[in-house]
Design a protein around this nucleic acid. Structure first.
Lengths: 242, 242
DNA sequence: GACTGCGTGACACCCGGATGACCACCACGT
DNA sequence: ACGTGGTGGTCATCCGGGTGTCACGCAGTC
């Protein structure tokens, strides 16, 4: 089940363009081939362009879509006669004959979506950052103001988990559950020690990034602009009574 | 007119596999699906793999071809029933039903060749460089400061894969999957030994290029440029005491 | 003022990676 | 055919550092 955007000059439904589509269970939005329709393209999983009638318009539409830096796969619907015209320069990811059966259409759509997913997965640096702190989950490295922190495995996992949920307080039991993974009773002081080692490696001026909430646990305090806040000690005080 | 390499388990001619091929004017070489036939693949413009009967063999053949760094387009011939099995992970460039007409086959072949031509023209230098390390994928040679490293096949493949994804950590299982290619359970220590041999050949002063991430895996650490260090204020005290 | 909860330093265990050695196997050349 | 060198996979062992635990001190709380 995917979200398709079908661009066609034909007013009729999708069955007019690609009969096989009617036999598949996808959410299909049908729009005319107009520049105004292109803004909706990024919201879809696949853009299907009807190039049966007007090959010239189809070609310019392809180029327009590509010019906007569209990352969504683009599939062309063609007649037998239109086959000879299409070139790689159009930038389409796949082509489908209007007479294609549902199994073939389904497979082609699936393949182009998979390819798009894996390619974007490959290049993604997989990093999250908060303020001056940057965490690269793919490379298992953390940097503070660009300076790499030499963290151990557990320290990195702990910091990553906290940064992934900024501002939220976690009890020691929760952290043991989520970061350590296994059910763990007794010895919750283990978390304390790891937090302490983390703070030490963050340096004296940044150890405040990990805050302590008495009787509750720890939390990552996303760095805020310190310009207006003079008395930060009290402003953090907030509602912790429970 | 192109040079096709048709891999098929069926002894008969190409017309048995893909009838439309008989109506097109391409030079077709037919070989059985065997590892020995794969060495001929780079000489062709397209490799066409018959996946109508044996989908399992077809899958492993695809992976084998991709593992050798094949740049030639790979097209699969399928039956209707085989459509659901293929995934993007196979690494094929296009698929064709055995019942496809000559016009469609011709267009798909042409598109796939055009794409290969433009992509290899654009961004496939066959040569990867990172710092003082240069890897020539085409010639299976690696140089460090211009000095050629005498690497074995697996060592080269491992180094190439790591360098292709600089800064990223790979688990032993991932490396076995990607570099060794086949599904592999148990004996992940194999990776350790190969990394060790690689480091030994890189020399004591460069063995740091392959970093170890405890509890996770290995990573290629691109040599850092000391020149462009933005700030010198903090980086001096980087090790968090002890 | 007693108690609770967290920070701090120190320490011992043990896991995980490094290391060296061994052997099966394949591709060579003779 | 055989012998040979090189490659690749596995095993046993060593060692270092990461991790967990404890004791102690201090600060906050009732």
């Amino acid at each position: 089940m995917a979200d398709l955007l079908l661009l066609t000059p034909v007013p009729g439904g999708s069955a007019q363009v690609l009969p096989a589509l009617g036999l598949l269970s996808h959410r299909v939005r049908v729009l005319p081939v107009e520049p105004s329709a292109l803004v909706d393209a990024p919201d879809s999983d696949i853009v299907v362009l009807d190039a049966r009638r007007d090959l010239v318009t189809a070609r310019t539409t392809c180029r327009l879509l590509r010019a906007t830096g569209l990352t969504v796969p683009l599939v062309l619907v063609l007649t037998e006669g239109g086959l000879t015209v299409v070139t790689a320069e159009w930038g389409v990811d796949d082509i489908v004959l209007e007479s294609a059966g549902p199994a073939e259409v389904e497979t082609r759509f699936r393949l182009v979506m998979e390819r798009a997913a894996t390619s974007s997965y490959d290049d993604a640096p997989q990093e999250i950052s908060s303020g001056e702190l940057t965490i690269d989950a793919g490379g298992y490295t953390a940097r503070l103001r660009g300076r790499p922190l030499d963290l151990t495995y557990k320290e990195f996992e702990l910091l990553k988990y906290l940064v992934q949920h900024p501002g939220r307080v976690f009890t020691r039991a929760q952290l043991l559950q989520e970061v350590w993974g296994y059910d763990y009773y007794g010895g919750t002081r283990t978390v304390d020690v790891h937090v302490r080692r983390l703070r030490a490696k963050l340096g004296p001026e940044h150890e405040q990034l990990i805050g302590t909430v008495r009787n509750v646990g720890y939390r990552f305090d996303p760095p805020k602009d310190r310009r207006g806040a003079v008395d930060d000690r009290d402003q953090v005080h907030e509602p912790a009574d429970a």
